[in-house]
Amino acid sequence: MSILEVKDLRVSFHTYAGKVQAVRGVSFSVDKGKTLAIVGESGCGKSVTVQTIMKLTPTPPAFIEEGSILYEGTDIVGYSEKQMQKLRGKEFSMIFQDPMTSLNPTMRVGRQINENILKHMTLSSKEATKRTMEMMRLVGIANPEINMLRYPHTYSGGMRQRIMIAMGMAANPKILFADEPTTALDVTTQSQILDLINDLKKQFQMAVVLITHNLGVVARMADSVAVMYAGKVVETGTAREVFYEPKHPYTWGLLNSIPDTANMNGNRELPAIPGTPPDLFAPPKGCAFAARCPYAMKACIKAQPEETCLSDTHKVSCHLLDPRAPKVEPYHVKRQKTE
């Protein structure tokens, strides 16, 4: 059973320049103990979606126009700030992109982890400190007795991200949202942090919602994938379906724009997606990707494509899947040579 279900969520920001439709009908669900990866370019609404679920977007300017967010079957869209505070940290927690700015520089890291524990668990302050140390050991920081007294600036990027994870995990959340947790880190540190998140997920049976634009990270972490473009989910499915049988031209474009290291033949050109994403002040009437899509037809400009279900999990919104559409050359799957 899915622990979190988002149905047709629409979020817009009311600004002086007009209404920005950041999220325009997003639906997905996450199962217990599984990882959902949300992929897309910057500005496609992936962070806004997650921040809306956590209710971290201030209202105004952000308004939920439509849709429902079901957490264990109850709709939390109408929840008040007080109710949300009980959920945040305890049921959901979030790891942010930039560990340099998301920790409080004036507080010792131990106290920052402790804060969450004292708020959500009925523990004495001694027990809470014990738990803080336990959490720090769990995320791989040795000697927590000493290290919990340090300030964030004395830690490196990877260690700060570990502390963020310790904070997020402190009250045993059921869902962990990770908003580009490794984008600011080096590949070697990224690998360590991804391993840590995977281990914790297995150990505590959490659901993880991972936002990223790195498809390598998606392949490593995700059970299911949602590809977002201009505020909509254009393709969703299990990781295998999205990587091996992608059906949306945008997914093809994303997969193609990574250099194929396994089958290199000289310095050939990378198949890039031309152009830039559309302006969400006035999103196009038809398919938002039509302007950049090499297969765009008249129908794409006129009407938005309906979601087509290819299997129980694999859903794609594209006019190319209509039986009347012309056949296009299918995507050539890139596989890595096994070690």
Partner: peptide, 27 residues
């Protein structure tokens, strides 16, 4: 070697089978 082993590649099956991953420690 460690650096190359740390890079996740966009291939779920390959990633699932991969045994050598990254290296320990920090710079």
């Amino acid at each position: 070697r460690g650096l190359l082993a740390s890079v996740p590649l966009p291939d779920p099956d390959y990633e699932a089978k991969r045994t050598v991953r990254g290296m320990k420690g920090e710079i």
